[in-house]
Design a binder for these strands. Structure first.
Lengths: 200, 200
DNA sequence: GTAGAAATAGTTCTATTAGAACTATTCTCG
DNA sequence: CGAGAATAGTTCTAATAGAACTATTTCTAC
């Protein structure tokens, strides 16, 4: 039997639902389309970019749970849009999740690493090329994250997002450095394997 | 009209299919169960751990495409198992993929970062606790990756996987360092926000 | 000034992926 | 010998990514 003394467990929802609700905790009202844009600009780096389809599906569910409300707003004589806002119940729920839900381990999907792991199937020069490209992409992302951090820092209430953007920036800088080291390792290995082949 | 001069494009398959096929390019024959274990030990860090259900589904598809063959092997009088092996066509296909398929950008899902991004909804002490836990987990993973690198390094033909394990190790070390820096930033922000609140 | 391209807004469909659950046999150790 | 962990294999469901699709609107070139 359950007793009233137990703290209510945080509602069971996928991380995407909480990310969407979290976005709404910064703003008064947003449409699904706005949400997608905000997500792409803010969550992109350290977490991820939920697909538009996911955002719409989660909004539907959050509304059913009473965590958001929506209203139709006429923007001109022909088109309408649906604007969503977080409810007090939604605010309680997300606070509970941030503080009490078990934290899922970070997960990385790294296509370059997968290909390097299959290096015995590739031309060493081609492999080098892929890792070098990855290094340059990381540099570009570090730059973008730095800009995001700067623009978040000047907006009141966005101090934590700014912090996370800086975290991302450093993360991409590390990725860049690691790729450079990988290139050295790759060259060394190619030399060793090349020697062995020549000696045969 | 297609001409015979064009190089055949690499078969369109999800990364998981190539990872499974790649695993088979190291070994003679493996069962679905073996594959799952190998994947958990080798791909886990830098790429990911495909679910057992995915491995079985991909094996079915790879067999339909002629990239693997299977045979039933009796292990005792009651149980049988199906052993899979890569075919010459499979070897050609995966070489093509490793070298010529466009590389998907790395993607990260970071629950700790998501919660830090929603820091305005949490108790600063609880947030600190989560980041500190993440730092310690990263240290443990660095250790595991280091062990994986050492055991791969002594096996002939596993030079590239050993390289990737070392890459992972450094990656987790960087993650550990970044988490430590994040703790400082968090403390600074808490001080600033606390000051502002007190001044009011 | 108008045809066509690109951008904005919103939604739906499909395939991939993760993870839990489930069956069934065998090994282990108290 | 009995409980429970390990091995082997499969299936189901939910989450997720990404492409496609409809429909307006604004921009740009002729």
């Amino acid at each position: 039997m359950s007793t009233a003394a137990e703290a209510p467990p945080p509602a069971e929802l996928p991380p995407t639902a909480w990310a969407v609700l979290g976005l709404l905790s910064f703003e008064r009202e947003l449409s699904g389309y706005d949400l997608k844009k905000w997500a792409d600009n803010s969550l992109r780096f350290f977490y991820w970019s939920p697909a538009a389809s996911q955002i719409y599906a989660e909004l539907k569910r959050l509304e059913r749970l009473g965590f958001v409300t929506s209203r139709i707003a006429a923007q001109d004589d022909l088109r309408n849009k649906r604007l969503f806002a977080i409810t007090p119940a939604g605010l309680v729920a997300i606070r509970g999740w941030v503080q009490h839900a078990p934290v899922e381990p970070p997960m990385l999907k790294h296509g370059v690493a997968l290909r390097a792991w299959l290096g015995h199937l590739a031309d060493p020069a081609r492999l080098r090329e892929m890792v070098a490209e990855h290094r340059d992409n990381s540099a570009a992302l570090a730059e973008e994250a730095s800009n995001a951090a700067a623009s978040a820092a000047i907006t009141k209430g966005w101090e934590y997002p700014a912090l996370v953007s800086r975290w991302s920036q450093r993360y991409f800088e590390a990725e860049q450095r690691l790729a450079a080291e990988m290139l050295n390792d790759l060259d060394e290995l190619a030399a060793t394997l090349g020697d062995a082949r020549r000696r045969r």
